[in-house]
């Protein structure tokens, strides 16, 4: 466990909490892509099946459970509790465009051809593209609430910190998981454009709106 890994996990958790607090306080999930949140719930579900098969550490187990609970509460808020505020019209990304290639790729390129390992691989590939419906929604409406941009910032920061973690682990432990690293790089690239807008607009007190 290194500092990048811890900070990455904290950013990830913070992102999920920011989103939940935003929805809870405003009693609204306007501007949030329910599809992205369903994908994240699917990501955690398929990745953390090893909760039942292997014990890594108390930290690992507790964090996995918290992530799963947060993801499902978020989906519940969007599709059940505050469904009237959900902007279904603009959440129009076609999920099959992500799910079909991701499923295919997880069967083709994995560490071992076993059900649990294929599901883990599926979750890694899916996570790298899960934010696209959200980014698509923002590009469609042309704007995002400031708190939504904070959520995206911490989600992107988590990915960037994981890259630093892998560089660290490569040098100190000779650890290198090609599937995770390649997907992580792809995922981080998706946030670059957003990071630019976040720094140039949101941090200067302006609302994020696209020209």
């Amino acid at each position: 466990m290194n500092i990048f890994r811890i900070l990455g996990d904290v950013s990830h958790l913070l992102a999920m909490i920011i989103l939940l607090v935003k929805i809870w306080r405003s009693k609204s999930c306007a501007g949030i892509s329910g599809k992205s949140q369903i994908l994240f719930a699917l990501v955690f579900t398929t990745r953390y099946l090893d909760l039942f098969t292997i014990f890594i550490s108390v930290y690992n187990t507790v964090m996995k459970v918290i992530f799963l609970v947060c993801a499902y509460i978020t989906v519940y808020m969007i599709y059940m509790k505050f469904h009237k505020t959900f902007d279904r019209e603009h959440d129009s990304f076609r999920l099959e465009f992500l799910l079909v290639p991701v499923t295919g790729l997880s069967f083709l390129e994995n560490h071992s051809f076993t059900p649990l390992e294929i599901l883990w691989t599926f979750s890694i590939y899916l996570e790298s593209v899960a934010i696209l419906p959200q980014l698509f929604m923002i590009s469609k409406t042309g704007e995002a609430e400031t708190i939504t941009t904070h959520y995206l910032f911490f989600l992107g920061l988590y990915r960037a910190l994981y890259l630093a973690n892998w560089i660290w682990r490569y040098h100190t432990e000779n650890f290198y998981d090609q599937i995770a690293v390649v997907s992580g790089v792809v995922q981080t690239i998706f946030y670059c454009d957003f990071f630019y807008l976040y720094v140039t607009k949101v941090l200067k007190g302006k609302k994020l709106s696209l020209p």
Binding site: D50, I54, N60, F67, S112, N165
Partner: peptide, 10 residues
């Protein structure tokens, strides 16, 4: 024997 993979990251 089958390789058991341990993924220790979240």
């Amino acid at each position: 024997s089958r390789k058991v993979l341990k993924h220790d990251e979240l």
